[in-house]
Design a protein around this nucleic acid. Structure first.
Lengths: 177, 177
DNA sequence: ACACGTTGCTTGAGCGTTCAACCACACGGC
DNA sequence: GCCGTGTGGTTGAACGCTCAAGCAACGTGT
C-alpha cells in the first residue's frame, strides 16, 4: 500500500537526483510501518475500549489531567499538548463530561478560557484503566523489540515530530490547520 | 499521552517481575511514537487529499489494484491484503466506483464473489498522484532518518505486525473482529 | 467610551470507519 | 432435490473527527 513503486514507470531518465520511487528495501520497511502502526493502534484502541470504555483520545486527556496538580488544565493547553484540534478537544471533553469524568469550569482571570477539571470518578477510572493499557503497550510493542530497537524507534519518531527542516506551512502548533 | 507512568502509584510491592509502568526513557520514546505517527499520518493524508483528492485508504486500494495483471482483485483478497474490514472496503470501493476509478464485476466461478477492477481513469489518477505521495513520504520520514534508523524502524514494525508470540484471540486476518 | 481585530471555545454539517444485522450464493449431508 | 451451515459481500445506524462558521470576551487605538 501507499506505494512508492511502479512496475509501469521505471527509473525516469531525468537525473535521478530526486528519485521518483523508493528502493525495494525502503518499500518493505515503509509497508511494515504502515501495517504495524495500524495494527498497534487497533490493538490499543480495542483493549482500552473493552476494559475501560475509553477511546485512546479520551485516555490521553485523562492522563494529561492526572499529571498536573489540581488536575486542571485549560482547554487550549490541553489541545496543544495532545496535538488535538480545538474542535476535537471540545467534542471529546463534552463526551467525558457527560460521563462525569471531567468538569468544565470557566476560567477566572480570562472570561473566554475554560478549565477542564478531572473529577474523582475520572481519576479512579484512569487508575483502573492504566495497568491494562500498559500491559497492552508492552505486549504489542515493547516486548517485541530489543531495547536498542525501541530506542531507535523513539529517536526516529522524535525526528518525525520535529518535522522537515525548513517548512513554514505545516510545522507545529495546531495540526497544521 | 497514553501514559504509562504514575506519580500516584509507585512501584507496587508485588514482585516487580511484571512491571506496572514504563521507565522514564521508555515513556519518552513511547510518546514520541504516538506523536510522530499521528503527525506523519496527518501529513500524508493532507498531501494526498490536496493533490489527488484521495484518502490514504483509497490510494492503497488503487496501488494494490495497479500491481496485479488485469488490475483486478477480489474484494476479500483486497480486504485481507490491506487489512481492511470487509465493510470498510465495501464503502471505500463504493466511493471509488462513484468516481469512476474502479468497477465492480461479479465473479465468474463464484457467484458470491465480486471482482474489483481498476479503470483507466483510476490508473491515470494513480500515476499522477504517486510522485507527490512519494515526495511526501520522503519529506516527512525518509529524509529525516539515517538509513540505519529507517531500517531498524522497518524491522521493529515488522515485529509488531507479527504480533505477540502466543496469541489466538487477535492475531491475523480480519482486524481481530 | 467605542469600534476593531484577536483569541478561546463551541456548534453543526459532512465524511469515513465500525459494528451488527442482513441477503445471496456455495457446499455438504441426507 | 432440499435443508442447514458457512462464506462473500452489502447495508444502515452510531460514532468520532474535520472543517467552516459562529459567538463571546479580551485588548488596543483613538
Amino acid at each position: 500500500m501507499t506505494s512508492t513503486s511502479s512496475r509501469h514507470d521505471e527509473a525516469t531518465p531525468e537525473a535521478d537526483a530526486e528519485p521518483r520511487w523508493l528502493t525495494p528495501a525502503q518499500q518493505v520497511h515503509w509497508r511494515a510501518y504502515l501495517l504495524g502502526s495500524a495494527r498497534l493502534n487497533e490493538a490499543l484502541t480495542r483493549q482500552l475500549e473493552a476494559e475501560a470504555g475509553l477511546s485512546l483520545s479520551e485516555y490521553e486527556i485523562l492522563v494529561r489531567l492526572s499529571e498536573v496538580p489540581g488536575r486542571t488544565v485549560r482547554m487550549s493547553e490541553l489541545a496543544d499538548a495532545l496535538v488535538f484540534s480545538r474542535s476535537r478537544l471540545t467534542h471529546t471533553v463534552t463526551r467525558l463530561e457527560r460521563r462525569g469524568l471531567v468538569e468544565r469550569r470557566t476560567c477566572s482571570a480570562d472570561g473566554r478560557g475554560v478549565n477542564c477539571v478531572m473529577t474523582d470518578e475520572g481519576f479512579d477510572l484512569l487508575r483502573d484503566a492504566a495497568p491494562g493499557h500498559v500491559r497492552a503497550v508492552r505486549a504489542h510493542l515493547l516486548d517485541l523489540l530489543t531495547d536498542e530497537q525501541f530506542a531507535v524507534l523513539g529517536e526516529a519518531m522524535a525526528a518525525v515530530v520535529r518535522g522537515p527542516a525548513g517548512i513554514e506551512g505545516d510545522c507545529k502548533g495546531q495540526p497544521s490547520a
